[in-house]
Every structure is written in structure tokens, then in C-alpha cells.
Design a protein around this nucleic acid. Sequence first.
DNA 1: CATTAAGCGAGACGGTACGTCTCGTCTTCAT
DNA 2: ATGAAGACGAGACGTACCGTCTCGCTTAATG
Lengths: 227, 227, 227, 227
Amino acid sequence: MERGSASAGPATGAETATGSGTAVRHHGNRHGRSEAARMAVLEAADDLLVEKGFAGVTIEGIAAGAGVAKQTIYRWWNTKTDILLDAFLQDAAEAFTPADHGDLAADLRDHLGRLADFLAGSDAGAVFRALLGHAQHDPAFAAVLRARYLDEQRRRDRLPLENAIARGELSAGLDLAFEVDRLVGPLYHRVLVTGDPVDRAFTDRLVDDFLRRPPHPPASAAGGGTP
Amino acid sequence: MERGSASAGPATGAETATGSGTAVRHHGNRHGRSEAARMAVLEAADDLLVEKGFAGVTIEGIAAGAGVAKQTIYRWWNTKTDILLDAFLQDAAEAFTPADHGDLAADLRDHLGRLADFLAGSDAGAVFRALLGHAQHDPAFAAVLRARYLDEQRRRDRLPLENAIARGELSAGLDLAFEVDRLVGPLYHRVLVTGDPVDRAFTDRLVDDFLRRPPHPPASAAGGGTP
Amino acid sequence: MERGSASAGPATGAETATGSGTAVRHHGNRHGRSEAARMAVLEAADDLLVEKGFAGVTIEGIAAGAGVAKQTIYRWWNTKTDILLDAFLQDAAEAFTPADHGDLAADLRDHLGRLADFLAGSDAGAVFRALLGHAQHDPAFAAVLRARYLDEQRRRDRLPLENAIARGELSAGLDLAFEVDRLVGPLYHRVLVTGDPVDRAFTDRLVDDFLRRPPHPPASAAGGGTP
Amino acid sequence: MERGSASAGPATGAETATGSGTAVRHHGNRHGRSEAARMAVLEAADDLLVEKGFAGVTIEGIAAGAGVAKQTIYRWWNTKTDILLDAFLQDAAEAFTPADHGDLAADLRDHLGRLADFLAGSDAGAVFRALLGHAQHDPAFAAVLRARYLDEQRRRDRLPLENAIARGELSAGLDLAFEVDRLVGPLYHRVLVTGDPVDRAFTDRLVDDFLRRPPHPPASAAGGGTP
DNA sequence: CATTAAGCGAGACGGTACGTCTCGTCTTCAT
DNA sequence: ATGAAGACGAGACGTACCGTCTCGCTTAATG
């Protein structure tokens, strides 16, 4: 899973790998949390998820796989889903800033295509689906998942539309949340509900359809809007 | 949850786990399954789900709640999700045949509204979301869920469009699966992913939008079809 | 184990668990106990004991092995040890009437040798040891075992001595129970407690020793009797 | 059952399952076994045996009675009989070093009397009979029982005779195993087989008889002993 | 420079639930 | 009425993880 490479970059902030030795800050406590242990746990967690599925992810299994004591895990995480969420965020966080080609159609095709690849075709997407599945069972975790990932992802989903508005391609009055629902909703539906495959043809068609229809007025004017 | 009334009648018992048809009691079979035990299990299962959430549903808990031996459960079901699926199917199966008002707009508004109520506002919907969440962890169960519920539900989702085609309101060349994705996808997205509320205004707007835009031609003719 | 020949005859079959008397046979009528079922049960029971040991003997296992319904077993026996006791009695009952050679030494050597062979070297002996073992756990069963087998066996053990008394070889005042304890006790001790092998040399030596020492007077005259 | 006092001392706890020696508590070992749990298990086990008999001794029952988790039991013992054996050894081990009065008759009377009291009249004896009964069903356990108790007990049984040989009271050529069989065999026979009561009169009579008969030459000279 | 307190690997512990096994009872159908 | 079949309530089995807890070691900032 090449975790090391995912986080070594300047974007990740304080937690670098242990090898560097310089950036270990955390001066509040005596000698601070072991970065090696943290990485080993995250790596072991999604190795387990990929190998044996969600039910095969176990705190004890993670501890054994990471060569770490259970207590070390419990010191820093509360549940296995917290661990998986950390692992997921570390892998996936930067993967998604949509490009800005100066053209709404191109931006949307690009973004939806990459979203589809992520959701249906990547290891990280598998972890995400597992987390989203768990969120259906656990409202508290759902809130955490939203705060730590989904809200950010929705902002990214909105970005191409916002850029288009800034460019004047789209009217400023759009209900962006609704439009995003309409763009990505069918994609999530296929991935989460029907299980049908999602390919470029499908996502392009979604974009196509979105662009061909008259922009939808916001809810307050739902009754009478015209293009 | 009024389970007794949901099945065809107190004496029926036809629905074994596979849900066959004719009403046999159980003296037609040589040594019959106890219908009372079956009902008690299903009832206990979704009582538990509602009271304590998915993680609180336990085979032992169901057995205790139903006054039934664990072995009786294991004789007829493999996993707790099988039980919940049976319970869900028994409650929810007939709830959804969409009406046919002879008018596509009315049919869609009605259907999407009822779908939203079901998904977001009913006990049965809570069970369904839990099952769908579990399906994200367990591909085998996902297949079962599709075979036993989702495929049927998708047929129901398609029905208003098919009726409209029969009436000539819509062109016969539509890619119904895609159109259904576009209708219900945003709804599922809100319920499963964003957690935003879904009300009549939202579903009506989805319908509205669907009707206002030119019907989308099938993929092969993506370039140009118009009504 | 040749069970069939042991009980097929008209004289047998009477000893049901309830101990009724008449030989039912169930020849033409459909009432009455099935002798075939009874035999199959007994045979299956000690087949299981020999194959898988005492813990491997199970009512369900016997039923399966005998091709008989559990209820048929429960109708006629209370516990698995009752079945094993019936099986044992049927096999072993007639095996032990000690011969009367008109000579105490010969009679005792013969009897102890056969007893040793039985206890340590026969399938029936294995069943007997299992039953005796179970009797250590279950006083009620111990009582049944004594009533149905051990008392009779002790009578047989006494027989050579009684014959010798009748012949005048031994004094009539002997405490036979004590003398029998002294004859067979060491043998049982080896078989049940130490697990040391018992061969003819050992049993002959017991007899030898018994004969060489002055017969022990009864307790009341412990101080002085001589032959 | 006064377990605390039976072991070498309240702080000892040296007896792991294997019963080694030095007193370590358990902060000498790196991650120590809980002595409290061990004691509670042993105590609960033979409380159960005394109260409800062998069949009433259950791992779950022991765990509940001891306030201990089942897994803690399975970590240290394999079967319930292992537990009972540990409990028995702890209670009974030191109870039996026969005294040495300098007189064979007195030593034997004393030893056999105490052995009879133990076997037939004590709680520990009840446990022992249960273990011996189980050994009839389970050869592997029989071997363990011999290695952990019976061999030692036989040494104790031999001791009075060995002392007498050392004193010159008995000839050095005796087959001690055989002589011990003859001394204690009748006692075990009564206790294990016939169920007849064993009192001092009986054991004294066994000793009496042993002493009155001419010492038996070893097997190799069985044919020709002299008085 | 010793002290000392945090993090850590290790793993025993009291628990809960798992899925399996056998028990003894029962109902049904066929003979 | 007996027997074959087998579902049922009951409950123990042995296993897997849970989350908590000591324990002894290491290590780095503090006094």
C-alpha cells in the first residue's frame, strides 16, 4: 500500500516517518507518540481490510499484524473504524482536488471519472465503502465520517460548478447542493446500491445530461422556473 | 411492528426462509417447521435493531427475546443479516407497488415521495439501511440482498416510466436503468451519504427536473435525441 | 460381538429395561416392542464404546448408528449407561459360571484367570470398566450395577469357596465376603488403579498365596483360629 | 474445603498447573498468572463436585462459581478433570506420609486405616474416586493421574514394608508391588466395586492376615517358598 | 547526571457472543 | 401403540475478540 510515500510529502505536516528524526516535535509529553507504531497500525489495518474484509479487521489482528501492543492502539484510537478512517484519510486525502481546465464540461468529465475510479476501482475506495457501510450502522461514526471526509469531498464535488459560476458559465443562483446530488447521486447509487459497473461512458453520460438540461432554478422558485 | 398482520394471516406460514407460496400450515410437510418460532425470531430481530442498533442485534439476543433456542435459529438462518432480511422482506414487500394515475408526473411524485418516506422515515427503512450498510462489507450478502429485494425494487422504480412509455408519454428508446439511476440516485445519495434530510420538496424537485429536461437518448445515440 | 446369536432365541429378549417378563417377540401383530430395534441399539452402543470411548457414546450417536429414532431409545432406556449395561449383560452374563473340578486350587486358578482375562483382555471387560467408572460418579447407577451384575458376579466369585466348604476342603466358618475380597481385590486393584498388567502368573500367585496361608477365621474369632 | 490452609502458605502460589516449587508470588515473572484466579477455580471446582456430583462440574459452572472468565480457565487447564486433579493434589498431597513407629504391625494398621478413611470418608476421597472413575474412560487421563498422584501414593503404600525390611522385620527379597496389591487391593475393591463399608475392623483384619501368613517369596520362586 | 514519567510490547484478566453439540421432550405420519 | 423422523427449548462446549489492567523496559526532558 506504499503508505510511507503517501505521507512523506510536505502536505502531511508534523507526522513524518520516524526515520527522519528531525520533525518529531510533540514536546508536550516526555518523548511522544511513536510514529513508527502509528504507521504500522494504519498499514496493518488496511492490509487486513483488503485481505480479509471488514469483519476480518480486528483490533487484535491489527496489533499482531503491526507488531504493536493492543494498549498502544487503545491509547490512540477508540474503535477499529477510527483506525480505518485514519488509514483512509492518509491514503486518499490529496487525491481529489479537481483540475480546472477553464471548461465546465471537461472539469466535470474529469472529476466524475476520477470519482468513479476512486469509488469503484481503488483500494482506497474499498475502504471508503466499508466506512460508509459502517456509518449506516452507527450515527456517531457517520457524523465523524462527514466531518473528517465527506464534507471536504462535497466541497471538491462542488468546485467545478463554482468555477463555472465564477467564469459566468453557470448562473449564480444555483442550488449547488442539489446540483451536486444530481451529478454524483446516480454514481453513488450504482456503486452502493445496484452494484452495476460504472465506466467512463456512464460518467460522461451523467455529465452530458447535466449540461444538456436547462439549469435548474433554486428550490424557492421550483414551481415556475424557465431556462 | 405489527408483524402478525404483515404476513398473509396467522395460520399461513407459507413463507419459509425462501418465501414460497401456497399456504400449507405445516402438517403438509412431514415434520413441520414451527411458524410460531419463525415469527418470534423475526419480530425479536427487528425489535432489537430498532432498540439497540445493528451492533445490538445478536443471535443470542434474538433467541432470548424470541424465547427460542439458538439452535432453532441456526437451523433456519445462517447469519443475523439473513434474519433481518427476512424480517425486512416480510414487513416491506407489499408496501411499494407504485400507483398508476395515468400521468407520469403524478406517478413519479407519488413514487419518489413514498420511496423517500420509506428510506428515511420508516422503521423498515432503518432496517434496509442497515442491510445495505452490511452489504458494503459482504459481497455475498450484497448479492442476496439484490436477488431478494433490490431487483424487485428496481422493477418497481421503473414501472412509472414503463407505464408512460406504454401511454406514449415517453419514447420507447429510453435507457430505463439510466433514467432510474438519475431519478432515485440523488435520493439515495442524500440518505446514505450526506445524511441531508429528504422531504417532499426535494423529491418533487427531482421529478420536476426529470420532466423538464429533454429525455436523454440511450447511450448509443448520445449525441442527439430529442422528444 | 455376535450379538444376534446371543439374544435371538426364545429364552432371551425378556429383559427390557423395565424388566417385564413375557417374551413379546411381536411376531405377527404390530404391537409390542421391536426386538430388531432393541438389538440394533445395544449393538450400536457398544460399537460406539469400542470405537470412540465412553465419551463418544451418545444417545444421538446410538440412534444414528442403529437406524432408530431417539424416541425409541428413550421409550425403553433412561440413560446411555442403562443401554451399555443392557448390552454388557447380554454379552457377558453366561460367560462366568466357574467350573467345578472338585479341587479348590484348580477351581480358583481357573476362575481368577478367567476373571483377569475378562477384566483386562476382553471387549466386554472394557465395557464393564467403563460402567464401573461411571458408577464412581453416580451412586444411583452404582446401585443398579450392583443389583444387575455385581451381586451375581460376587456369588460366582464365592462359588469355588462354597464348593470347597461343601467338600470339606475349607472350614464352614469362613467369612466368605472377606476371603473373596482378598482373592479378587488385588486383581481389581491392578486393573482399576495401577494399570499394571495381569497375567496368569499374577493370578496363580494370588491363588497360591491364598492357599498357602492359614485360612483366616471370621472377624469374631480374629484372635486365634487355625484349620 | 479450607483450600488456603492446605497449600504451603497464603503467599505461595508456586504451584502452577505443573506444581513446581519455589515461592514466587507472581511479580517475579514478567507477566504473571493470577494466583487468586487459580485458587478460586480450584475451590469452585471441588465445591461443585461435592455439591452436585461429577456431572455437575462444568467449566461454565466453575467459571461462574469462581468469578472468573472461561478463557482464564482454558488458558491454564485443558479439561475439567485436570482442574479437579489440581484441586485434589493441592488438598491431599501431604496428607499421607505414613508414620514410622518402628513396628510393622502398627505402621500398617495406621496406614491402612488412614487410607480407608481417605478413600471412603473424606471429601478429597470423593474427588479421588471421581477421578479414578474418569480414568476408566480416558486412558490418557489415567496416565496423568498415575504420574501425578498414584505413583507417589504407591510409594507411600510401600513405605511401611520398606521400613520393615530395613529393620530386618521382613526379608529383603519380597516383591513389594505384589505385597502392596495384597494389602490395599481388598480395600480398593470394597470402595470401588462392592461399595461395602470399610471400617477399622476391616483394615485391621487385612493387616492381621498379612502378618499371619508366611511371607510370600517373589514370583521367580513362586513354586517353592517356605514358611 | 540522576530522576522520573510517558510510551511501548507483552499478555493475563473478566466478559460477551459466537457457532456447534447433545440432551430429553414433543408432534406428526405411517404401519 | 410403536417406530422413524426430526423440530424444539435448554444449556455446555471451546474459540475469538473485546476493552481494561498490570508489568518491566526504554527513553528523553527536567530538576
